[in-house]
Design a protein around this nucleic acid. Structure first.
Lengths: 149, 149
DNA sequence: CAAAGTAGTCAACCAAGTTGTCTAACCTTA
DNA sequence: TAAGGTTAGACAACTTGGTTGACTACTTTG
């Protein structure tokens, strides 16, 4: 019997692969999951590189590398922090927001296909079950994503 | 609303972290998920390094590195292939089988805790739902694990 | 106002994979 | 049965995505 985590990993992988395939057909830059997570984070709040690193669960140096790429590609830009002369806010450009919207559509397409395959209600149960488990493990303050890729 | 894959990844990560923590308390070698997947594979069938690479979805060179570690630590050993003088079968030692048994217990403990947190039936639905989705996507021949770590 | 802490950058290193090459053995097949 | 193509495994160089450590400029706190 397969351990549950293996099922989780395989499903994550399967969905991620499909996402990536379709994305590549559009010929975008080679965005990795981390980039997507950054977009999602920046949509919510203004953040510095250090904040981003914290959220991703990596060092600020690693975060800086990611931010640099996104900057080079025009997905984000840096603007001076209003009160702290050391810091810079990283913000989404229009291109970044467009990407995010596009990606969200793609995700919900994939989720729709999943619902079709296994049933709307089953998917809902999965969603709620996993959320409840994370709640159970981490309580209120969910950690950064501590990603898996 | 969180995309489902993110929930999958976070749950996988949460369970994996707990697994790893408890394992480390016992002071075992720093086994990574890949090692566990190799054990699970070798329990089923005799396999060469190339087979293992195929199963893990990595090159044979990468697989060889993993097998070397496991050999150094005494979890597997290599024995000559009966008919092919180039090849070697990789097989679990007693230490390897003991580890696997231990790990399986640990996993089912964790799964038990999950069941307690979110309900036996919810967990069962998750299990079946994910399996059905994988079936839907990949059909009969599930790919190697194409792992995520 | 001095001391401790923090944002960001630079540089060196590391781990886990990749590609490419080679040898010895294997498998056609003419 | 010899010849040509394929394969298992090893070795080496490189790539990627991170790490730790050190430093500067600025900020916060006692």
């Amino acid at each position: 019997m397969e351990p549950v985590p293996m099922l989780l990993a395989m499903t994550y992988r399967a969905m991620g692969d499909q996402f990536h395939d379709r994305l590549r057909q559009i010929g975008l830059e080679p965005l990795r999951p981390a980039h997507g997570y950054v977009f999602r984070f920046l949509k919510e709040k203004r953040a510095t590189t250090v904040d981003i690193g914290q959220h991703l669960g990596v060092t600020k140096q690693a975060a800086a590398k990611i931010v640099n790429e996104l900057d080079d590609w025009g997905y984000v830009l840096r603007e001076p922090h209003p009160t702290d002369k050391r810091a810079q806010y990283v913000t989404l450009t229009t291109k970044g927001r467009d990407y995010l919207k596009f990606a969200d559509n793609l995700w919900s397409d994939l989720e729709g296909e999943m619902a079709e395959a296994i049933g709307e209600d089953t998917l809902a149960t999965i969603r709620q079950g996993l959320a409840a488990y994370l709640q159970h493990v981490h309580g209120e303050d969910q950690p950064g994503l501590r990603p898996v890729w």
